[in-house]
Design a protein around this nucleic acid. Structure first.
Lengths: 186, 186
DNA sequence: AAATATACTTACTAATAAGTAAGTATTAAA
DNA sequence: TTTAATACTTACTTATTAGTAAGTATATTT
């Protein structure tokens, strides 16, 4: 895979996470890369292609992380902590996550990017639900809600607290994450 | 106040909640209203004026609701239920809330709209934090987190579950709200 | 009756957006 | 050594955007 192509995806992702899908242009990417906007169209003929590729790259990254955690034999606490650390990093870098950013722009997205975003959100929620279910079976976690509901509540908290932190800057993101995990302790 | 002006604010708000700040134009509003786009500029010279007015209108609406609940002597449970019902209505109407929608677009907003959004979010969180604090003092609520953290967690859950519901359509929003309130029961 | 304010329309401008067709320099393969 | 693929640039088009200046019809005030 071309290095320019990878840089375009990386820059595009950062632009989506910092400014949103409808507020970034091919010019933003090409200027940053020091090329002409037609060069971006060479790799991604339309913004639809770029958006879809960005989400696909994220799905791949997430699935690799899950595989890696499973092959290392991570228990449910270690898995949840690793997942939460992604959000703590996003907060440190003043970025949102794709679910929150593209979720807000959902109605304006093209069909393919929508499809990949749906797929990505399902993959995350399915993993989280199954991790919560197994963790509770093993008495590692304790909670009363349906695992699916608990998964949505945890993901929502992580996603929207990033957004609210952007509005109100004195929020202690790590402390919020602590509250989330405290709510799962037996 | 002019009825056209009010309609513009209402349409603008709905456009922000369904498509986001950067994906709606004065044309969208003028077409819907059956006037020319210059008519919108007559009431709101710039998009900054419109955005700011939309947020201010929401602040006013929220403050009126709070005043109303206080003057009716609503207890903390009734207040929280009333607040959550706003979100259930938004979900039914397939809309987001301003905090979530404009939170995602925050970095692209003008200074005045940012200021009002900050003010609105602070008002909501301060009310929620104080309601939770008082409710716990009265043993109406039970929770272990810091009230400020609990307020952020509740607001985040409401906000981002609207976004996630847009992506994944089989989410039972009311059931999520039930999980939120169940977590406060003594 | 004349002046003024209100609520617009007409007819623009300048900037930026996505997207394209055709050309060029460089590297790799036949 | 010619051919072809790769990685772009040049130079454009078309559409949409926010925004404006000047004009007009209607109602209200003086």
């Amino acid at each position: 895979m071309s290095i320019t192509r990878e840089k375009i995806i990386e820059l595009g992702e950062n632009l989506i996470l910092s400014r949103g899908y409808n507020a970034f242009s091919y010019q933003d990417i090409s200027t940053e890369l020091g090329v002409k906007n037609a060069a971006i169209h060479y790799y991604f003929p339309s913004k639809e292609n770029l958006g879809t590729s960005i989400v696909r790259t994220n799905i791949q990254r997430f699935e690799e992380m899950i595989d890696n955690m499973h092959s290392r034999g991570f228990d449910e606490w270690q898995q949840l902590d690793t997942f939460i650390k992604i959000y703590i990093k996003s907060h440190r870098e003043k970025k949102l996550c794709l679910v929150g950013s593209l979720g807000s722009d959902f109605n304006t997205l093209n069909e393919n990017t929508k499809k990949e975003l749906i797929r990505m959100t399902e993959i995350i929620l399915n993993w989280l639900t199954s991790t919560l279910t197994t963790g509770r079976e093993k008495s590692i976690f304790k909670f009363n809600e349906e695992p699916q509901n608990k998964a949505i509540l945890i993901l929502s908290s992580l996603v929207a607290t990033l957004q609210i932190s952007r509005i109100i800057d004195n929020i202690d993101y790590k402390s919020i994450c602590q509250s989330i995990t405290d709510g799962l302790k037996p």
